[in-house]
């Protein structure tokens, strides 16, 4: 402040007091910044930075949500994958060899009966897997998550007439979506019919592992009942014909697994990029908001010295006083 005119006593005090209060304000402001570790104490401090803080904060919160979603989705896919793996194992190591043995025609009735029971148990297991629930929902039912996807129907003699699929069909809107990024969704479920197939004796529809198993069981039943030569030959031929279908079923299941493995990998990549973005945004937010502690501490000390200096100056002026002290 330049003063061109004479300085009156009151004016000197005013100037000194103004200076002291400015220094005190600077000091207090820096203290508040350090206490809150934030450059922005009000939206008016820096409106542009405020808007950016809000946007960045939103981005960070979204990333957290997406990462959580990915976690849940990956859990479900892993669960699905594990079960299908064990199913494939069972098909390759148990069900198909049983069918091969039965087709050989060298076993007696008791052995055939045992094989039949084992295969019937296998079908139960497959259907149980098809009816698996995850978080209270059937995971192989498409979007019909509260409807049990597979049911076995038998006639009075205990013969399987059909295994129906009650979920959303593979050619329907079966997808359940999970958000893994802004406007990006991953499908996390597989329709049961594309994995396990179904069977209906009335229409002759027989698909997938379920169709194969039911037909194998039916052929074995014929063998166990000790039929005529011709019937045996027909049943054995039927069993031979079914052997390939075991392999087809396995590859059908593997196709579904591959599809979900790729969804899993997509999410894994999304996770990596979300993690990287999170690091970036955190540093952006920190730049916008956080104080540079070295800089602010230095400023704080210089503000403190300025404040002390102005106080000591004021006291000195009061001590020096006026002409009055010398009269």
């Amino acid at each position: 402040m330049t003063i061109s005119q004479g300085i009156s006593s009151q004016m000197l005090y005013t100037i000194l007091q103004d200076g002291m209060s400015t220094n005190y304000n600077n000091y207090a402001n820096l203290l508040a910044q350090i206490a809150s570790n934030s450059k922005l104490t009000s939206i008016a401090d820096d409106p542009v930075a405020t808007v950016n803080v809000l946007k960045t904060q939103k981005g960070l919160d979204n990333i957290e949500v997406y990462l959580e979603n990915i976690g849940i989705a990956q859990d479900e896919i892993t669960e699905l994958d594990d079960m299908l793996d064990s199913l494939n194992d069972d098909i390759v190591s148990t069900y198909k060899p049983l069918a091969v043995q039965a087709a050989n025609g060298t076993y007696d009735t008791d052995s055939l009966q045992a094989m039949l029971q084992q295969l019937e148990g296998g079908l139960e297991t497959i259907i149980q897997i098809g009816n698996t629930k995850f978080n209270g929902d059937y995971i192989f039912a498409g979007t019909n998550v509260k409807t049990q996807p597979f049911t076995i129907n038998k006639d009075a003699d205990g013969n399987i007439t059909s295994v129906t699929y009650n979920g959303t069909p593979a050619d329907g809107e079966y997808e359940r979506y999970v958000q893994t990024g802004d406007g990006t969704y991953e499908v996390i479920n597989a329709p049961g019919d594309s994995v396990f197939g179904y069977y209906d004796s009335a229409t002759g529809e027989s698909e997938g592992i379920i169709g194969t198993m039911v037909e194998t069981i039916n052929a074995l039943k014929v063998l166990v009942e000790q039929p005529t030569e011709a019937e045996v030959t027909a049943a054995n031929e039927a069993l031979y014909g079914l052997l390939d279908r075991f392999d087809e079923s396995v590859s059908q299941i593997t196709t579904v697994q591959t599809k979900y493995a790729s969804a899993y990998n997509n999410m894994e990549m999304a996770k990596t990029s979300l993690d990287a973005t999170e690091v970036n945004l955190t540093s952006v937010l920190s730049n916008l908001k956080d104080i540079d502690i070295t800089e602010v501490s230095t400023d704080l000390y210089s503000a403190m010295y300025a404040y002390q200096a102005s106080m000591s100056l004021l006291s000195q002026v009061y001590q020096t006083g006026t002409l009055l002290n010398y009269l």
Partner: peptide
């Protein structure tokens, strides 16, 4: 919560259909 892009695909059991929630989520951006 459920929404059918193709009304012909309507299935009364499809309670897990979350496409309408996806539509709602998409309004955000």
């Amino acid at each position: 919560t459920a929404y059918f892009d193709d009304p012909a695909q309507f299935d009364a059991n499809a309670v897990g259909n979350n496409s309408n929630v996806v539509n709602m989520l998409n309004t955000r951006e």
